[in-house]
Design a binder for these strands. Structure first.
Lengths: 205, 205
DNA sequence: CATTATTGGGGAGTGCTACTCTCCAATGTC
DNA sequence: GACATTGGAGAGTAGCACTCCCCAATAATG
């Protein structure tokens, strides 16, 4: 399959594919001559993956590149797999995290983590603290009780996420990283649907 | 307070505040002369809100404008409040929804909604269908069982969301819309934390 | 009252991202 | 042999979120 075939198979314009190739988001095809290369199904999958991560998960191309690099790498030691996965996830997401949140919100975050028996990954705790600060600054009060309920729901989700994983380390990494990124928007949509249901039940509002 | 005071109070540069004023994201201050206007605490709150929605919730300025417009409007009829809220939320988020998803995924989405007893808001169902398609295209399989678990967790969250609301209609709208937008990232962070916990429990992986 | 600083307003410029266009000689196809 | 297509690379584009600069009018200061 030549580049126009790849374009036809994925619905992505040839010019954009060339751009992805240049940027290293899609590996080059097998060159059959100086002006011809052959693309196969793995390329089709790659292109679709890039589109899904940008369009649905909302990642930037730079973030996509990081995620793909993490997936392609043999994850050094197999027991550090989830660590690698989260490194990829966290790095792929907001770089808007320079500061580390207020002392107060960091304490709240750390207390919640401790209460749940979660590990206190510094990156994640800091991020949570910043998000709590942002809500506070916007005048939205996030109570401890409410936060606990969110955490309980997250706990269920985390369990479900890991439940889908096969023991095979490479596909597990792929499954967790991509699955999480691609079902984040799904989760938020479900949340909105559930809100509508909840509002009906609590009366007309 | 003049514009420099507003800048000092919010940490946002004067040039940026002027830009927000021009774009109508922040209402003009009370003009005390042709070259002077007075800003008060409501302006400080507005600016902080804009920053929280862009930096933490990841909205574009255009989306922020839509959300603010929806909040400022008297919500026509008070019983359509959640409807207004969701209209604001949905409109504020992805416009990347032109198509409507595969027939298959739309059916899956509608079945899930029916199973949960949720209302089948067309906009939300279509969005969910597209997100499922994106995951599928990327080669990530989302099983029905897994989706059900996500929905169950979402149901809890939706209940918790509505539980924080006071019967006062105006503050309820504000609470739901802003609360949802600002705790979406919180929820995703908690999910990642829970994944780390789950991975520890299922063995070293 | 004179001088200096600041203000609101607005146009234009910046840096970044994700493409998109144009050109080229080499190659494939009919 | 004529024409279309390809890979490669440079340059151009559109949109976004600022950021800079200039202006005359005003406020603050001595």
């Amino acid at each position: 399959m030549r580049i126009s075939g790849l374009a036809a198979a994925t619905g992505v314009p040839v010019a954009t594919l060339k751009y992805y190739l240049r940027e290293g988001l899609v590996p080059p095809g097998a060159a059959t001559s100086r002006t011809q290369a052959d693309y196969d199904d793995t390329h089709v999958g790659r292109v679709r993956l890039v589109r899904a991560l940008t369009e649905s998960a909302g990642l930037s191309l730079a973030a996509v590149r990081d995620v793909l690099a993490a997936l392609d790498d043999p994850p050094t030691s197999r027991h550090d797999l989830l660590g690698a996965a989260h490194h990829a996830l966290v790095a792929a997401e907001g770089d808007r995290a320079a500061g580390a949140g207020t002392d107060l919100s960091r304490r709240r975050a750390r207390e919640l983590v401790a209460e749940r028996g979660w590990c206190d990954d510094l990156l994640l705790v800091d991020r949570l603290a910043e998000q709590l600060d942002a809500a506070d600054a916007a005048g939205v009060e996030v109570s401890d009780d409410y936060l606990r309920e969110l955490a309980a729901a997250a706990d269920q989700i985390g369990t479900a996420d890991l439940g889908t994983v096969r023991p095979d380390p490479v596909s597990a990494l792929r499954q967790v990283v991509l699955g999480t990124l691609l079902t984040d928007p799904v989760l938020l949509t479900l949340r909105r649907m559930a809100q509508v249901r909840a509002s009906r039940e609590t009366g007309g509002v």
